[in-house]
Each structure stands twice: as C-alpha cells, then as structure tokens.
C-alpha cells in the first residue's frame, strides 16, 4: 500500500491518491457474462456512486471491489493491493482498512447490536476495552441507534438492521467504505439522514466511499462522481451534471425513472405465451 498512506501505521489516505483502480474487468456467472470491460478509478476523499437498474451488474461489481469474487479477466486494485493475486494475509490486512455495509446487514444473529459493532475492533486492534466500547457507542449515536445496544438483530426493524451494519462498517474509521443499497427500504427521513451521514464521513473523516444504489435521488445528492451500469457495461460516468447531460437513452431512462422496455415483438410475445 506504499504511496497511499503517509506512514506505515497510518489509517488515513494521502490526499489525491487513487484508492481503487479497475481495468478491463470481466465477470461471468456460469456461462453468462455479467460484467464487460469495466474500467474505473476512485480517488481519496471521493464519493463514487454506482447506479443501475436490477440486473445491471452493480452488485456483482461491488462483490469484485470488496474481494468477494475473483474476476474472469482484468485487474482490480484496492488500496494498492491487486485482488487477483493477493494472499489471504494481504486480504486480511486490506480488510482492516475498509468497511462494507451489506444490504441485508450481515449481522451475527446471536450477538447484540453492540457486540456486532465492536467485533471489528476486537478482531483487528489491541485497544483498551473501554476505548472500544466508547468507539462502538459513538458510532451507534452517529447512526441514531443509541439505546439499542442490547437488542438482538431479530428485535430490530429493517432500517435499524441497516444502520447497525453501517455502524459496524465505520467503527474502525476505515479510509475506504462500501455501501450496498444503503437507503433501500428506508423511509424518506431516515434515508435523507443517511445521505447526510455519508457526506459527513467524507468531509470529517476524509473517507473514500463507494455506494451502490438504484435510488436516483440519493445518488444525485451524495455523488462526487456517478458510474452508470447497464447490461454489465458502463454507459455513463462523470459528475452529476455530466451524467445528467448524457445523450444515452438508457441513462435518461434511468434518471427519469422510466421502465426498461425491450423492443416489443408481438410474434415473439405470442410464442412465449403459448409455448407448451
């Protein structure tokens, strides 16, 4: 990770460094190719939002960025680590510097909220227990979950699970954060609070943040840069203004919330309906 941190033991990225570099990424699920020639970069202190409809490949791309899937072709480098060739030890070291808030929360059902949030600190640091507890409680305050410390995941609403997952993802103040559909299923007030939190994490903690979402309003609010995926390909990338100005019909359909309707073929339609 040389060049990205100003000291060997540092946790904060050098401004202006590239934290994620993807070149020519391709991915398959079985025979089906789901990502085609994806190239992108994320800079330090930047919020990059990956947008796309269902089946556009955005969740698959996220899985590759966090090291949960290996590319069929191409290169994925995160915080200076090439994920194709990284050893288990290198991946463990890398995970200390990144947080992931999964869509479904991925909380341990037998642990309380506080125990879930404190887990990364216990696994990756040797801080005093009192420090760890205060850090975890601070993050629960930040996501408005104060008072829920002793609840089990099964006792939480969907929105609370999501916020607990976010508290766990940020508890180590990682320089790189990933959010998978952070505001999906949340009421508008909580979703707006979450958008504010993401902006605050960038501004106050200098975090680099990648958000995967299909929530257009949220994407346009928080993004420094947007990447629009369709059919496993990048169809637009740039600032909000640049993407808004895109001439691509697919991009305009997505921004204007128009459904994706394939060319209508009455013959084929009738065939499908009457197929034995």
């Amino acid at each position: 990770m040389s060049g990205l941190f100003d000291r060997d033991d540092a946790h904060r990225l050098v401004p202006g460094s590239t934290v994620i570099a993807v070149e020519g990424l391709a991915a398959h699920w079985g025979e089906r190719q789901v990502l085609h020639d994806i190239s992108l970069q994320v800079g330090s202190g930047e919020i990059v939002v990956i947008m796309g409809g269902s089946g556009s490949g955005k969740s698959t791309l996220l899985r590759h960025l966090v090291g949960l899937a290996r590319p069929t072709a191409g290169r994925v480098e995160v915080l200076g680590t090439d994920l194709r060739t990284a050893s288990a030890r290198a991946m463990h070291r890398l995970r200390r510097h990144m947080g992931v808030a999964f869509q479904g929360g991925a909380l341990f059902s037998s642990l309380t909220v506080l125990e879930n949030v404190i887990l990364p600190l216990q696994e990756h640091t040797r801080l005093a227990p009192a420090t760890m507890h205060i850090m975890a409680r601070l993050k629960l305050e930040v996501v408005n979950l104060a008072g829920s410390e002793d609840l089990l995941p099964a006792e939480l609403s969907g929105g609370m699970v999501k916020r607990a997952a976010i508290a766990r993802a940020v508890v180590m103040d990682p320089p790189l954060l990933f959010f998978d559909e952070p505001s999906a299923g949340l009421d508008p007030v909580v979703a707006a609070e979450l958008d504010r939190l993401i902006l605050q994490l960038r501004d106050a903690m200098h975090m680099s943040i990648v958000v995967v979402t299909h929530e257009i309003e949220s994407a346009l609010t928080i993004a420094d840069r947007l990447i629009v995926l369709d059919g496993g390909r990048i169809v637009a990338t740039g600032t909000v203004a640049e993407v808004r100005a895109s001439q691509s019909p697919r991009v305009q359909a997505l921004l204007n919330r128009q459904p994706s309707v394939p060319d209508f073929d009455p013959e084929a339609y009738l065939d499908r309906l009457t197929r034995a």
């Binding site: 946790h11 801080l127 420090t131 850090m135 601070l138 993050k139 103040d173 903690m205």
Partner: peptide, 13 residues
Amino acid sequence: SYIDSSGVASLVE
C-alpha cells in the same frame, strides 16, 4: 491535523 474515533474515545473517557 486529524483525530479518529479511538482518539475521540480517549478524550471521552
């Protein structure tokens, strides 16, 4: 120039 949550937690304690 920067303080993270572990630094803040130390101040709180």
